[in-house]
Design a protein around this nucleic acid. Structure first.
Lengths: 222, 222
DNA sequence: ATAGTTATTATACGTTTGTATAATACTCAA
DNA sequence: TTGAGTATTATACAAACGTATAATAACTAT
């Protein structure tokens, strides 16, 4: 009596879709957009290539869905770190910064996925829309903290501009550290971010008057 | 007497190589890494596909050379803006900032090319090496300006850390503006950068004491 | 003018891509 | 236990990929 050994196991569409999405994320991280093919993703998920087309409209659709999922996953991870911190603007912001430069976030694989999406943002309208939504949420969160601190410390500043600056700083630090971790440590990145907040609290940010427009004097590039 | 009309015109290898490199840059910007094929590049350059293999070891080699060329081209463009500015650390730095957010630099196509290289940096050792060199030069330049200002203003700061922070800020602003110019204007980006320098001059940067390491409290992501 | 060099084109080949179709077999309900 | 539904696999196919090869023709030097 040989045990009957199923050739494959069925799964609920929703479950299988997520398995394929996670496999796509892993592939994007390891092999880039080029290396992420229907067959590679299927192999990574341990299913047949045909199944991809059964659950998604096509490779294009699968990548877009992977963006949505990754964005939510990052958001979830960061939000989790905030529950432990006191319910106070500065404490929340500082916890957010620490979480941004914690090991799970400094994963070069995560950057690999993100770079793919950034690239697609430029040409793909669907990805572009997802990008706008993800970043708007991100900035909105930072701006809330900054406004809270400004109100408390009676600072006069433009919270929108400040949020833009901090977002750019964090993005840049994260990007460059993941691209080449040997350049600076995660601890140094954290220090830079926290110092930025120190400056904000000191009321020295966005205190300058309007500047005159510079004279364009650069040759065409690219 | 019909004029004899050559089927093609010859060119010096060096010249033709650059034409192909520039065509590759345009293609990377417009169609991404996927869309940048031997045939597309050849069409863009107005030559036959076979010519690519004649001048380059392969598609891989062509892309690497395009990175080198683009890096030098950007460096050249920025350096040109500095010759017009007074030979003084702060003036040079401010001119550098203005040039960084001038129209030729805020070209989304340029970002398109750059994103490709960032992606490849993670998997390709050759590209990784080029990346390291390009960024080291960039940071070295900023650090020189910052050290000059610090010396003049008798500020005590860590020029390396400061250069890292400014590099990240500029990279982030540039990246995000190119990805979605509707979020903030080039003028706002310039303002943020100059305000950072104001803070630097006020001696408020990197003044904070050492911070304790945070408790990792983030779930795994990616 | 003429010969030699080689940049350039033309053509072809094997691989891999995304997608489509039909057959299979797991799961659940009756 | 049987039958229906469909998740899953297997196979196939046209298109496009990078690369290799040989023929062609533009330029240079003599």
């Amino acid at each position: 009596m040989a045990e009957k050994e199923p050739k494959f196991t069925r799964d609920l569409p929703e479950s299988r879709r997520r398995q394929l999405i996670e496999a796509t994320a892993r592939s994007l991280a390891r092999h880039g957009l080029d290396g992420t093919t229907v067959r590679v993703v299927a192999a990574e998920a341990g299913v047949s290539p045909g199944l991809v087309r059964h659950h998604f409209a096509g490779m294009h659709d699968l990548i877009a869905e992977t963006y949505r999922w990754t964005g939510k996953e990052v958001e979830k991870g960061l939000r989790a770190a905030l529950t432990a911190a006191p319910d106070h603007p500065e404490a929340q912001l500082r916890a957010f910064l620490d979480a941004s430069f914690s090991t799970p976030m400094l994963n070069p694989d995560l950057l690999g996925v993100w770079l793919t999406f950034w690239s697609l943002t430029r040409t793909d309208p669907v990805i572009h829309e997802i990008h706008g939504k993800v970043y708007a949420d991100y900035r909105k969160r930072l701006q809330r903290y900054i406004s809270g601190i400004a109100e408390e410390k009676k600072l006069s500043l433009d919270p929108r501009i400040a949020a833009l600056a901090l977002t750019a700083l964090l993005d840049g630090l994260w990007l460059e550290h993941c691209l080449d971790p040997s350049t600076f440590t995660a601890s140094e990145a954290r220090q830079i971010a926290h110092d930025w907040v120190d400056n904000l609290k000191a009321g020295r940010f966005m205190a300058g008057a309007k500047r005159e427009e510079p004279i364009p004097a650069v040759a065409k590039v690219g």
